[in-house]
Amino acid sequence: MLRCRLSNKRMIEYLDKTMSASARKRFDLHLASCQACRNKLAEQEAWLAQRTALLADQKKNGLPDNDLPARIMDAVGKATMSEQAEPRLKPSSRRVWLAPVGVVAALALFLAIWQVLPLLLKPLVGPLQEAAQDAFSPPMPAYSILMPSSIVEKTYGVDGYGSWYLFLPEKGDQIALNAQKAESEICYLAVLSLSEHARAAVSQNDLNTAVILIPASPDSVVELSRRAENILQTCSTPFQIEIIKSAAIQGHLNSMDPVLYGMMFNAPPADSDWILIWIGK
């Protein structure tokens, strides 16, 4: 069957009845002869029926009382009162798997380490940078590095979650299977970016964890994580590296921390695996 060229956007416009009459007529004509498009449309309409049920349920069972804002303010008051009376909340128990790292990285130690991290990386990074420049001219970046200023504003910053760095590639980006130079550079830049900005952010924010997230092709993900590990092992900052299958990345990020979830608004590349590096407690 020929692949249908009607866009998803046009489908939505058809469902919304926001097409011009002539366009709608053409669409109708097409639908009459295209089973695939009829199926797509039926699926959307099935959702719309389900949505109606959800909205009806909300209307019937889910409208809040008028004094909801007052109860919320009460709850906020109580929570902040008890916080003042009690020690600081512990970090989420959902990060139990980070315990071995967390134990090592007591906050004081952590902050001290951040102070020296750039110094520790400097001797490593300098030659690497020169080598990278010598070996090949830098390709057009296949990634973007979100700077701390744009990340921290999206994070909670307090209440046990801390703030984060995230090395987040653009949608559709992936490190090519055989482009080992690019892979090395990505690792190098990720670590470099972290070291460049860590100190400033630590002093300005309640930073307690750094995250680097790198996409890699399934065939090279193990090798790439080994390289990242090599880079990180030259400094004494506690870190943990994980490899996550692409299919699980979204759920994994959702499960780990709301902060990360908020940043995964761009679609992760569907066919890459991920290297997730946690640095700090």
């Binding site: 889910g62 919320i72 504003e153 994070t155 910053g157």
Partner: peptide
């Protein structure tokens, strides 16, 4: 359900309150 929604909206505002200083007006 109403109870869970209420719990969560309260928890949300507690988090919002605690995190407010981290909001930088970019979104």
């Amino acid at each position: 359900n109403r109870e869970d929604a209420e719990d969560c909206v309260q928890e949300s505002f507690i988090k919002i309150y605690r995190s407010l200083t981290g909001y930088r007006f970019r979104s």
